[in-house]
Amino acid sequence: MKILTTFMLGVAFGVASSVSVAAPIDSIYTSLAVTSCKTLEADEEGAGSYQGRCPGTAGYQLDLLEGDIRQSITVLDPKGKEFPLDLWSTVSSGFSALGETAEWRVKKVGAKKQPIALIVRFNVSGDPEHPERTTSYLVVSKITANEICVTDVVKPRQGANQQARVLADKAATKACKSD
């Protein structure tokens, strides 16, 4: 019996220590407001297109794209490699607008915080007859060394923000949503 008790205590201590070693995941927020982004391209007259570079975190940046009253984001990694999220095809082709805040889920790696996922609000007008009626989705994208893409779309409901964070924290192992 003593051996079993000692073994169980050892297992309990081992599990407790492995849990405490895992780096906690936190959030860092950056702005997607046009006033916080540097305009790279704007065509007010023709198609009403816009491209602006918004600050991110840990060397990442976000390009805010707009065309034909639809918006999307391209993530730039610290080396400048572009990862288009193509929200207008992976989430909805309806008229759309991004929320003004990006939530980066980050893990502490050594002394630095490394982004593992991105959450943005994506407001979509799905009814052409009533464009004022919008649905506000939370879009979760994974960030790995080789891939940045949309993995989940959270529909509006109570607790949606927390659900998006849970999905973001597990996004690295998920497949990318296809168009």
Score class of each variant (00 low, 15 high):
Lys38Arg: 11
Asn146Glu: 14
Ile148Pro: 03
Cys176Tyr: 12
Val120Glu: 10
Gly110Cys: 07
Ala175Lys: 14
Leu76Trp: 01
Thr57Trp: 07
Phe83Leu: 03
Val154Glu: 03
Arg105Asn: 05
Ala16His: 03
Pro156Trp: 07
Pro115Ser: 01
Ser178Gln: 14
Gly48Ser: 10
Pro24Ala: 06
Asp43Met: 13
Val109Gly: 00
Arg157Lys: 14
Glu132Pro: 00
Ile148Ser: 10
Ser125Asn: 10
Val34Ile: 08
Ala171Lys: 11
Lys108Ile: 00
Met8Ala: 13
Ser27Glu: 10
Cys176Leu: 09
Glu132Gln: 14
Arg70Lys: 15
Arg165Ala: 10
Ala97Asn: 09
Glu100Val: 05
Trp104Asp: 00
Ile73Glu: 08
Cys149Ile: 13
Phe95Pro: 01
Pro131Met: 13
Phe95Ile: 12
Val21Tyr: 15
Gln61Leu: 06
Glu66Asn: 12
Arg165Pro: 00
Val19Phe: 14
Ser17His: 09
Asp127Phe: 02
Asn146His: 06
Lys81Cys: 01
Ala23Asp: 03
Ala175His: 11
Phe122Arg: 04
Val34Ser: 14
Gln158Val: 04
Pro128Trp: 12
Gln162Thr: 06
Gly80Met: 02
Thr6Val: 12
Ala117Tyr: 10
Thr90Phe: 01
Ser49Thr: 15
Ala102Ser: 06
Thr6Lys: 07
Pro55Ile: 03
Arg70Val: 09
Cys54Asp: 12
Ala22Gly: 02
Ala117Asp: 05
Pro24Cys: 01
Asp77His: 04
Ser92Leu: 04
Leu85Val: 04
Ala111Leu: 04
Ser141Ala: 15
Asn146Phe: 01
Gly52Met: 07
Pro128Leu: 11
Glu45Thr: 12
Gly59Phe: 07
Lys79Val: 04
Val34Asn: 13
Ser92Asp: 13
Val166Thr: 15
Asp152Trp: 10
Ile69Leu: 13
Ser125Cys: 09
Leu4Ser: 02
Ser20Val: 09
Glu66Gly: 07
Phe122Val: 00
Ser92Met: 03
Val140Phe: 12
Ala33Thr: 06
Arg157Ile: 00
Val21Leu: 14
Ala171Gln: 11
Glu129Arg: 12
Cys54Tyr: 05
Asp43Glu: 15
Ala97Pro: 03
Asp152Ile: 05
Gln158His: 08
Tyr50Trp: 15
Asp63Ile: 10
Val15His: 06
Arg70Ala: 10
Val11Ala: 04
Pro55Tyr: 03
Pro115Asp: 00
Ile25Gly: 01
Leu64Asn: 03
Ala102Met: 11
Leu64Ile: 01
Glu100Leu: 09
Thr6Phe: 12
Thr135Val: 15
Gly67Gln: 15
Ser93Cys: 05
Ala16Asn: 01
Phe95Ser: 09
Ala42Met: 10
Lys170Gln: 15
Ile116Leu: 11
Gly94Val: 10
Ala175Cys: 03
Val19Ile: 13
Asp86Trp: 00
Ile116Thr: 09
Ile69Asn: 13
Thr101Ala: 07
Gly48Met: 12
Arg70Asn: 08
Ser92Arg: 10
Arg53Thr: 07
Ser141Arg: 09
Asp43Thr: 15
Lys170His: 15
Ala97His: 08
Ile148Ala: 05
Leu62Lys: 09
Leu167Gly: 06
Leu64Val: 02
Gly80Gln: 05
Gly48Lys: 11
Arg133Tyr: 06
Ala58Trp: 02
Ile69Trp: 13
Gly48Thr: 12
Arg70Trp: 12
Ile143Phe: 10
Glu129Gly: 01
Val140Met: 10
Gln51Ala: 11
Ala175Met: 11
Val153Arg: 02
Thr39Arg: 11
